[in-house]
C-alpha cells in the first residue's frame, strides 16, 4: 500500500534518484573500464619491455652493448653492426639455412600427414575415434622433445644421424599432434551441409571438397602451417641432440653460448625472435582456434 503511495506522490524525486543511480553506475563502469585499461597496459608493458630491451641491444653498435649503465632509450646510436657481427659469425648463416630447411620440411610433412587425420576426426564418426583423439591429446602433452635421445641412437644405427632431414622427422613428430587437432578444428568449423549441398548440385565428393571446402579451410590450414614452422624454428633441445655439424640456428647459438660475447648473444636472441613477432601477428585470429582445442 505504501509503495503505491510513494509512486503516486513523488514521481519527480524517483526519476531524480534513478538518474543519480544511473550516473553512479556509469561512473563506476568508467572507472572499472579505466582500471581494466591500466591493467591491460601494465601487462602489455611486461610483455613488451624485455623485447624492447633486446631489440635496442641488437640494433646498435657492439661498443654500446658493452657500456654500463645502459640507456633505457633504445637505438642510440642506431646501427646494424651488432646484427652484422652476429650474422658473420662462424656457423650462423649455415645454421640459418638449416633451420629454414628443417622448418619447411617439417611444415610440409606435418601438414600432409595431419590434414587427412584432421578431416577424419571432424567429419566421420567411427569406432576408435575418441581413442584416437585422446591418444593425440596425450602425445601432444608428452615431452616429445626428450625422445630425441633414443632417436639419436636409432639414427646413428641407421646412418642418418646429424642431418637436417632426420631432425625434420623428429620435429614432425613433435608438431604432428598439434597440427592434427588444429586442422580438425578448422574442418569442424565448416558445416558439412555445404559439402552435401555441392554434392546435391552434382559435384563428386572430391569435387565438392576441392571447390567448396578447400577455399574455406585454406586460411586456417595456412595458419596452422605457419605455427608449425615457428615451433620447428624455435625447437632447441632435439636440434642440439640430433645434429653435430649441421646445426640449426638455435642449436648453434646454444652450443657457443658460453664462449660467445654479449653482442653476439643479444643479436642472436633478437634474430630468433623476429619470425615469432611477424608470424604471431599474421595468425593471431586463429590462435584460439588452435590452442583452444587443447582444452576440448
Amino acid at each position: 500500500m505504501s509503495a503505491t503511495g510513494n509512486l503516486a506522490s513523488a514521481p519527480v524525486r524517483a526519476s531524480d534518484e534513478m538518474l543519480r543511480v544511473r550516473q553512479r553506475a556509469l561512473m563506476r563502469h568508467r572507472i572499472n573500464q579505466g582500471l581494466v585499461y591500466l591493467l591491460a597496459i601494465a601487462i602489455s608493458l611486461w610483455v613488451l619491455v624485455p623485447i624492447w630491451f633486446i631489440a635496442s641491444m641488437a640494433l646498435t653498435t657492439p661498443a654500446t652493448v658493452r657500456t654500463f649503465p645502459k640507456g633505457v632509450l633504445p637505438f642510440i646510436p642506431f646501427s646494424f653492426d651488432t646484427m652484422q657481427f652476429f650474422l658473420n659469425s662462424q656457423g650462423i648463416i649455415p645454421g640459418l639455412i638449416n633451420s629454414i630447411v628443417v622448418a619447411i620440411i617439417t611444415l610440409v610433412l606435418s601438414t600432409i600427414i595431419a590434414a587427412p587425420a584432421g578431416y577424419a576426426i571432424s567429419r566421420y564418426i567411427f569406432p576408435g575415434r575418441d581413442f584416437y583423439r585422446l591418444s593425440i591429446l596425450a602425445v601432444r602433452a608428452f615431452p616429445v622433445v626428450i625422445l630425441a635421445i633414443p632417436l639419436a641412437v636409432v639414427f646413428i644405427n641407421v646412418g642418418i644421424y646429424d642431418s637436417v632431414y632426420s631432425l625434420a622427422l623428429m620435429h614432425t613428430a613433435l608438431t604432428l599432434p598439434t597440427t592434427v587437432l588444429v586442422i580438425g578444428s578448422v574442418f569442424a568449423s565448416i558445416p558439412y551441409e555445404l559439402e552435401e549441398a555441392a554434392q546435391v548440385y552434382g559435384c563428386t565428393p572430391l569435387q565438392a571438397f576441392r571447390a567448396v571446402v578447400l577455399p574455406l579451410v585454406a586460411p586456417g590450414i595456412a595458419a596452422s602451417a605457419i605455427f608449425t614452422f615457428v615451433m620447428s624454428w624455435n625447437e632447441v633441445f632435439a636440434a642440439s641432440i640430433l645434429t653435430v655439424r649441421n646445426r640449426t640456428l638455435p642449436a648453434q647459438v646454444l652450443s657457443t653460448l658460453n664462449q660467445s660475447s654479449e653482442p653476439y648473444q643479444f643479436a642472436g636472441a633478437f634474430f630468433m625472435m623476429i619470425p615469432a613477432l611477424i608470424f604471431i601477428f599474421i595468425i593471431r585470429r586463429y590462435l584460439f582456434n588452435m590452442w583452444g582445442q587443447i582444452s576440448k
Binding site: V47, I51, I54, N234, E262, F270, M272, I280, L287
Partner: peptide, 21 residues
Amino acid sequence: LYVFAIALGVSELAVGIVWYA
C-alpha cells in the same frame, strides 16, 4: 591480444638470453 600472445611463438633460448640481458 597480439601482445599477450607474442610469447607463444618466441624461442625458449631467445627468452633465456633476453632475461640474461
